[in-house]
């Protein structure tokens, strides 16, 4: 059952991912963005199969929920017609081909050379309590430093977007 689900989610991820960049039917960026949502949802299915439930939920909430809504906002501000007319350029083809080759090489190289660490694959901790324990023990300092990033980002967002007192 698990194997079947894995293949279903993996195939869905790949097909939807392909449709994000090269959709034969529609060239609208909005369609691409919506296919990206499907890609992310099927990816989170893969996370569930790995028992990483929290990551699966975060994947949907943060990427499908927050990041993509932002994408859509930006897309709405673009000139959709111009985007639809745009064709794939030679530079894009060559760059994309190179990137695909690099990823293919990685997939070949990783299993062959994975013997560097004798300890085996890291244990997957899927539950929120395990994650929370890690955040407040081993990763305490980066976790606290992230709060500074958020404060800085918040201060900046307010400053750069507020009305000038004229």
């Amino acid at each position: 059952m698990q194997d079947i689900l894995f293949y279903v989610f993996a195939a869905l991820t790949l097909v939807c991912g392909f449709l994000v960049v090269a959709n034969p039917i529609s060239r609208s960026p909005v369609t691409s963005a919506l296919f990206l949502v499907l890609t992310i949802v099927s990816l989170s299915g893969l996370f569930v199969l790995l028992h990483a439930f929290f990551l699966a939920a975060v994947q949907v909430v943060v990427y499908a929920g927050a990041a993509l809504v932002l994408f859509l906002f930006v897309i709405m501000m673009l000139d959709l017609r111009a985007e639809e007319r745009r064709r794939i350029t030679r530079f894009g083809l060559i760059g994309g081909g190179l990137a695909a080759l690099a990823v293919a090489w990685l997939f070949r190289a990783v299993p062959r050379e994975a013997a560097l660490v004798a300890s085996g694959p890291p244990h997957v901790e899927g539950s929120t309590s395990a994650l929370g324990a890690l955040l407040f023990t081993q990763y305490l300092l980066p976790f606290e430093a992230i709060s500074l990033v958020l404060v800085a980002g918040m201060v900046g967002a307010i400053l750069l977007s507020r009305k000038e007192p004229s």
Partner: peptide, 29 residues
């Protein structure tokens, strides 16, 4: 400045990334 000082002491890639992002995000502003 905090980000830079943390980066100088970072001994773990998670720390490196957070410190660098702290520097980068503040400089974007």
């Amino acid at each position: 400045l905090t980000g830079m000082m943390l980066a100088a002491s970072a001994y773990h890639f998670a720390m490196v990334f957070v410190a660098l992002e702290l520097i980068a995000v503040t400089f974007y502003i």
